[in-house]
Design a protein around this nucleic acid. Structure first.
Length: 565
RNA sequence: GCCCUCGUAGCUUAAUGGAUAAAGCAAGGCUCUUCUAAGGCUUUGAUGGGGGUUCGAUUCCCUCCGGGGGCACCA
């Protein structure tokens, strides 16, 4: 829609000049608006309002007949457009007939995108931060999928590194097989915490941990076996959590996958003169980028995160030929990604695919400080999900006392998880979130359940009507109805915007506004009691279209839409 | 000290350089003999300070203040 207006305007302005079309915040400024006249004013040396007037005449003469009901010029030079009801009805029909395809597009057709997210550390519990990561990454993957991209959802497991040396030391000293089998992650975390407590008074522990990791890296059988076992037990627990969250992954390759490429990679970097030795370690100087050197080999010979990530980019480019790689990882790793992307630039890898660090604010503990695994001050993902489900269950059984227990369970899960996801997605991803049970568990107002509720009550109307009979869309004309149609029209753009900004908070707001208009219509219009059947059915067409957009939108957010809640 | 990030209503947030700064929560009022009141309507209330660029700044630049995070042998 925007593009259509943009095209029309472009015929009348100097080529290459941007004709930006926006959707005004207030309805009295039209359905669409442009400031192009004001921007042209200094170039054409004319008064902006005169330019706007001229444009208005030209557009009125050339625009398809019946597209606009009105074009207005407003000081200091705005040009505002109103679509005609006739055109809106035509669009409504198209939206209604497109069903669940409306909003989706094929602009990403033939392109592949890798979305790396979640990326849990083996042997460590998932906490609220991982929840935010998984929810955000999953929604971005959904956005690109809706735009026709082939999406590779990649869980880049933290399954390698010195922490395994620590865990092996701790297990050998204080571990117990049965305890780990019973509650793998809790038991391993306890060992990890104990290691750090003991290491405060025993400096040899850190040394031993490095030795054990080196043994693991050089293929020591005993350590290898332990590592595989830690990994297997952890994954079992993670997958339960992903199932609850509805997050799926195409690739589970973690850091360990690149382990064998480390030695040759380091040798290659040295040989090419990209890396140099420094204080017994190997570093890639990055002065050119105004960054500290990137360390790719420790003085004990072990590789690092950066080393593995270089191999990782190369592998991905070769195997998947992606157009983009998104790294969904917190703000706190910004510096490491600056280094990684600088190295990618040296190697020319960033010419082959766009590399983006999708950073997001931390989830901070109550009091505004960082959660820390080491000190054991965490709120686990499991605890959050359990709590949100229990709360949803309370509300569901209060509102629907007659609902069968099994059904109520299922709906509670979907409502609880929906609330959690919406809460995490509605804020701009850069903002820190201070953890707050009350807010996270909110089921009313601007929330996931509000959208689910709207979907369910509209669904009920359709269900009660049994079927949509002959309709006459020209019977739709009151402002509530037309505002709703116009809102539906904005949906595809919102998805594109999410892809541009790598965040979906605009979609969460859009869906809320759509649902709000939908509810207002619902409250003011007794749809099924209408004696005018052609109008009754036209209204069913309208709410069915709203329902479909809500459903598609919610699915992009990773939230399910039950017909009944 | 350097780098990243944030600062908007009592609280949590929104706003490709645009018009009257948009919501939710909280607080007050109204609203179910009616398709789901988890709703709808309504009242009160905000851009950290100071400069600059611009016809126009929450947005861009400078500076100060404040919160959070990071700064080579962790990830």
């Amino acid at each position: 829609m925007k593009e259509l207006i943009e095209k029309t305007i472009k015929e009348f302005i100097p080529s290459g000049f941007p004709a930006e079309i926006s959707i005004p915040a207030h309805s009295e400024f039209g359905h669409y608006s442009t400031n192009v006249a004001m921007r042209l004013a200094p170039i054409e040396k004319k008064a902006p309002l005169n330019i706007a007037e001229e444009l208005k005449e030209k557009i009125l003469n050339s625009a398809p007949k019946g597209l606009f009901s009105k074009i207005e010029t407003v000081a200091p030079g705005f040009l505002n457009f109103w679509l005609s009801d006739e055109f809106l009805r035509k669009e409504l029909l198209a939206i209604y007939k497109n069903k669940k395809k409306f909003g989706r597009s094929n602009i990403g057709k033939g392109k592949r995108i890798i979305v790396e997210h979640s990326s849990n550390n083996i042997a460590k519990p998932m906490h609220v931060g991982h929840l935010r990561n998984t929810i955000l990454g999953d929604s971005l993957a959904n956005v690109f999928e809706a735009l026709g991209y082939k999406v590779v959802r990649w869980n880049y497991l933290g399954d390698w590194g010195t922490q395994f040396g620590k865990l092996i030391v701790a297990y050998k000293l204080w571990g117990n097989r049965k305890e780990i089998e019973k509650e793998p992650i809790a038991a391993m975390t306890a060992l990890y915490i104990k290691f750090h407590d003991e290491a405060k008074s025993d400096e040899t522990l850190e040394v031993k941990a490095r030795e054990e990791f080196q043994k693991l890296e050089s293929g020591n059988k005993e350590n290898r076996k332990l590592w595989e076992w830690f990994k297997k037990e952890s994954l079992l627990e993670f997958k339960k959590m992903y199932k609850l969250l509805g997050a799926e992954f195409d690739v589970w390759l973690g850091e360990s996958f690149y382990e064998r490429q480390m030695t040759p990679l380091i040798a290659e970097m040295l040989e090419k003169g990209i890396a140099v030795k420094s204080e017994g370690a190997v570093v890639i100087p990055l002065d050119k980028y105004n960054l500290l050197p990137g360390l790719i080999q420790k003085s004990d010979g072990a590789s690092l995160y950066l080393t593995r990530d270089i191999a990782n980019i190369r592998y991905r480019l070769k195997k998947y030929k992606p157009a983009k790689i998104l790294y969904v990882i917190g703000n706190e790793q910004t510096f490491q990604f600056e280094q990684l992307f600088a190295v990618a630039n040296i190697l020319g890898l960033d010419k082959l695919a766009e590399l983006h660090h999708i950073k997001y604010g931390l989830v901070l503990a109550e009091g505004g400080k960082k959660f820390s695994t080491r000190e054991g001050r965490v709120v686990s993902a499991e605890e959050v999900i359990d709590k949100v489900k229990a709360l949803a269950k309370e509300v569901v059984s209060k509102k629907n006392p007659e609902m069968a227990a099994k059904k109520a369970d299922k709906i509670s899960e979907s409502v609880g998880v929906g609330a959690l996801k919406y809460f995490n997605l509605k804020e701009h991803r850069h903002s820190d979130i201070v953890f707050d049970w009350e807010k996270m568990l909110s089921l009313s107002g601007q929330s996931g359940p509000y959208l689910q509720y709207t979907f369910a009550r509209l669904s009920r109307v359709i269900k009660k009507a049994k079927r949509i009979g002959n309709y006459d869309l020209t019977r739709l004309s009151n402002p509530e109805e037309m505002a709703l149609v116009k809102k539906l029209l904005d949906f595809p753009e919102e998805i594109e915007k999410s892809a541009e900004q790598f965040g979906v908070n605009n979609i969460t707001l859009y869906l809320y506004e759509l649902a709000n208009l939908g509810n207002r219509f619902y409250e003011t219009t007794p749809i099924l009691k209408d004696a005018d059947k052609a109008r009754l059915n036209a209204r069913l067409v309208l709410i069915d279209a709203v329902r479909n957009v809500l459903k598609t939108g919610l699915s992009i957010l990773g939230i399910s839409s039950p017909e009944e809640i």
